[in-house]
């Protein structure tokens, strides 16, 4: 079976900074794959490189069996869509929800726009009452739902999720995570999800890759984390940190 996403020894260089140092990755169709790491680990850069938003220095990215060049064509964007981290920054401040959702349809020349917009809003649980609102009239969770609707409206098979809930309150986060899971089940989507939170990744993904400093630390399945079957110290540290604060003797605090 061809992989949904295959990344082979990918290098990304910003100016002279090597943000990704030869990272490889393989995501099967219908799978949900997680990327975990702290800031500067290159997890978001990897996601953006796949989307065509980061300068690839060397290496290959293959999506659904097609190797991507430096330029992405329109067909690519109908296969792959992305949801950004900050729901306050990813919606155009001067456009209504309606206009936001119409844009991809207009670009790709869909005729049944009205129906699709209504369906997309229903699917993310917003309904028509939100259709003519501006971004500033929405709460954080509602904005993220709109962003998800926008990503879904072209009916992609792969969704790239860049910390989609880290800017949201815990209760809203649960709602959005549930929504994402439900959509994935219904549409048989492939997820590639970035997060700094191990708990979210184990909740959402079957397999994951731990990253640090632009390199892959280790590949795990979600169950490994549950059963603490990790081999690298870095992962162990992350795992410990995710359990909250543990009072220790002073000399043991420093890393």
């Amino acid at each position: 079976m061809t992989s949904a996403i295959a990344v082979d020894r990918l290098e990304v260089i910003f100016d002279r900074f090597r943000a990704l140092k030869g990272v490889s990755l393989d995501v099967q169709p219908g799978e949900s794959f997680g990327l975990v790491g702290e800031s500067g680990s290159g997890k978001s850069t990897l996601l953006r490189a796949i989307a065509g938003l980061a300068p690839v220095a060397s290496g290959n990215i293959t999506v659904n069996g097609k190797t991507l060049g430096a330029r992405r064509d329109k067909a690519f964007y109908r296969e792959v869509q992305m949801v950004f981290q900050d729901p306050y920054g990813s919606l155009h401040p001067r456009q209504t929800v309606d206009r936001l959702l119409q844009e991809p349809l207009a670009i790709h020349g869909f005729a049944d726009g009205e129906k699709r917009i209504e369906r997309a809003l229903d699917e993310v649980g917003l309904g028509n009452g939100f259709r003519f609102r501006y971004a500033h009239q929405l709460s954080g969770g509602q904005r993220q739902r709109v962003a998800i609707a926008r990503a879904l409206i072209l009916e992609p098979s792969i969704l790239l999720l860049d910390e989609p809930t880290s800017a949201l309150d815990a209760s809203v986060q649960a709602e959005v995570l549930n929504l994402l899971e439900e959509i994935r089940r219904r549409r048989k989507l492939t997820f590639l999800m970035v997060s700094h939170d191990l708990a979210i990744i184990t909740h959402m993904c079957e397999r994951l890759m731990v990253m640090q400093g632009g390199e892959a630390v280790e590949n795990l399945i979600a169950n490994d984390l549950v059963e603490r079957r990790v081999t690298k110290d870095y992962t162990r540290n992350l795992l410990r940190a995710s359990e909250g604060f543990v009072r220790t003797a002073p000399e043991q605090i420093s890393r």
Binding site: A51, L53, R72, R78, M82, G89, S90, L91, E103, I107
Partner: peptide, 13 residues
């Protein structure tokens, strides 16, 4: 470089 312009780029505009 804002995300909303990135998002439109990702629409294939």
């Amino acid at each position: 470089n804002s995300d909303y312009i990135k998002a439109v780029q990702l629409m294939g505009a």
